[in-house]
């Protein structure tokens, strides 16, 4: 077992564990915290896979902004605890389906007619400034239009959020 594989397995366990924790915890705040941990684990995966920028963006945007917003809303509304699963029978079908999906995926992937290949240790390329530069150039050259469209989407979302959360004026 190489150190890469070891690292992968540990992180995979952590991420699956935290995902399950998110799924199963009764308290929404704990769910959010588990998700933050999960996001962090995935960010480390990104680092390992040679995407440091995305990893940092993941932490900054997801962990730093989105999840904080979640926490904020949870605390603001005081809705930490909504009873989750009293009636286990109702969840048999989804659970069976989920199990089937996972098994199917694993079977699909392992029985593929040709292997999908290995991921080389990318840590050499992580630390070169060139990768960042390439990413930036790709983003602002080939993907400029999607980038701009995304910015418009963000603008629209911002306006929408402001409109939605604006206090209604008295008398209306």
């Amino acid at each position: 077992m190489t150190i890469d594989l070891f690292l992968f397995l540990v992180l995979a366990l952590v991420s699956i564990g935290t995902a399950l924790g998110m799924l199963l915890s009764r308290n929404a705040v704990y769910s959010a915290l588990f998700l933050v941990l999960n996001l962090g684990a995935v960010a480390i995966f990104f680092l390992l896979l040679g995407a440091p920028f995305i990893a940092m963006a993941q932490i900054t945007v997801y962990a730093g902004a989105i999840m904080v917003l979640f926490l904020f809303v949870i605390m603001l509304l005081g809705t930490e605890e909504i009873p989750g699963m009293q009636n286990w029978k109702k969840f048999i079908i989804p659970a069976v389906l989920a199990g089937a999906l996972i098994l199917e995926s694993i079977y699909l992937l392992t029985s593929a007619s040709r292997p999908l290949g290995l991921i080389a240790n990318p840590s050499e390329s992580v630390n070169t400034a060139q990768a960042m530069r390439d990413l930036g150039e790709l983003l602002f050259d080939q993907y400029l239009l999607p980038f701009e469209v995304t910015s418009i989407l963000l603008l629209v979302a911002m306006v929408g959020a402001i409109v939605l959360s604006k206090p209604e004026k008295a008398g209306k």
């Binding site: 190489t2 890469d4 594989l5 992968f8 995979a12 991420s15 699956i16 995902a19 399950l20 998110m22 799924l23 999960n38 995935v42 995966f45 896979l49 909504i82 009873p83 989750g84 699963m85 109702k90 969840f91 989804p94 659970a95 989920a98 999906l101 996972i102 995926s105 694993i106 992937l109 392992t110 593929a112 292997p115 999908l116 290949g117 290995l118 991921i119 080389a120 240790n121």
Partner: peptide, 26 residues
């Protein structure tokens, strides 16, 4: 050297957990 398959399987598992969350949480 981690096979790509492992990552995909991990991704599938995480995805399924997420889908389950959508289905069973209120």
């Amino acid at each position: 050297m981690v096979p790509l398959n492992y990552y995909i399987i991990l991704s599938a598992i995480l995805f399924t957990i997420g889908a389950l969350g959508v289905l069973i949480r209120r």
